[in-house]
Computed example of a mutant assay.
Amino acid sequence: MDDSFIPARAIKGRGAASNPEGRFETIRHHTEDDGWQSTLLDEAAPRPRTCVTEERARSVITSNDSPDIAFEQALNPFRGCEHGCVYCFARPSHSYLNLSPGLDFETKLRAKTNLAEVLRIELAKPHYVPKPINIGSNTDPYQPIEKKWRLTRAALEVLSECHHPCTIVTKNALVERDIDLLVAMAREKLVQVFVSVNSLDNHLAAKLEPRACAPHRRLKAVAALAEAGVPVGVLVAPIIPALNDMYMEAVLERAHEAGARCAGYTVLRLPWELKQLFREWLTLHAPDRAAHVMSLVQQMNGGRDYDSNFATRMRGHGVFAELLRKRFEIACRRHGFGRARELQLDISRFVPPRKPSPQGELF
Rank of each mutant, 00 (worst) to 15 (best):
V193C: 12
I145F: 13
P165H: 02
P165I: 00
L190C: 03
K189A: 11
L182A: 11
P215H: 07
H216F: 12
V230T: 04
K171C: 12
E209Q: 07
A155T: 01
V222H: 09
H216K: 12
D140M: 02
G229W: 08
A228K: 07
K148N: 08
E161P: 06
S160D: 15
C213P: 08
A221V: 04
A214V: 06
P141N: 13
L200H: 04
L181N: 04
N198Y: 05
W149F: 10
T170V: 12
L159P: 06
A173H: 13
Y142C: 06
A173C: 11
I179T: 04
V169K: 04
N202A: 14
L225P: 14
G229S: 10
L225F: 13
E209P: 04
M185Y: 10
H203D: 10
S199A: 14
D201T: 10
K220P: 02
C213H: 13
L219I: 14
L200I: 12
Q192H: 14
A205E: 06
A205Q: 06
R153S: 04
A206Q: 15
V191P: 01
E176A: 15
I145Q: 07
V175W: 03
P215S: 08
V158G: 00
L159Q: 07
V234F: 06
A173G: 13
V169Q: 06
E209I: 05
R150N: 10
R150S: 07
Q192M: 06
R218E: 03
V230N: 03
L151I: 12
L200W: 08
A184H: 15
R218D: 01
H164A: 05
V183L: 04
I145T: 15
L159R: 01
V183R: 07
A154M: 09
D178R: 02
L156A: 00
K189N: 15
R218L: 01
V222P: 05
E146D: 15
E176Y: 14
N172M: 10
L208T: 00
C162F: 12
T139E: 05
H164R: 07
A228R: 06
A206C: 09
P144E: 07
S160N: 15
S160G: 15
L156S: 00
I168V: 11
F194L: 04
L225Y: 14
A186R: 11
S160P: 14
V169W: 09
L181P: 00
A224D: 11
K148M: 09
N198M: 10
V232Y: 03
A228W: 04
V183F: 05
K147I: 05
A212N: 07
S199T: 15
T152I: 12
D201Q: 11
S199G: 14
T139L: 10
A212D: 04
H216D: 14
P141H: 06
R153F: 00
H163T: 03
L190Q: 03
H163R: 10
K171Q: 11
T170L: 01
V195R: 02
V230L: 09
L219Y: 13
A223E: 12
T152F: 11
R187H: 15
E209D: 13
E157G: 01
H216S: 13
R217L: 15
R218N: 02
N198I: 02
V193G: 01
L225N: 09
E209K: 08
P141I: 02
V236S: 00
L219F: 13
A223K: 12
T152V: 13
E157N: 05
S196N: 10
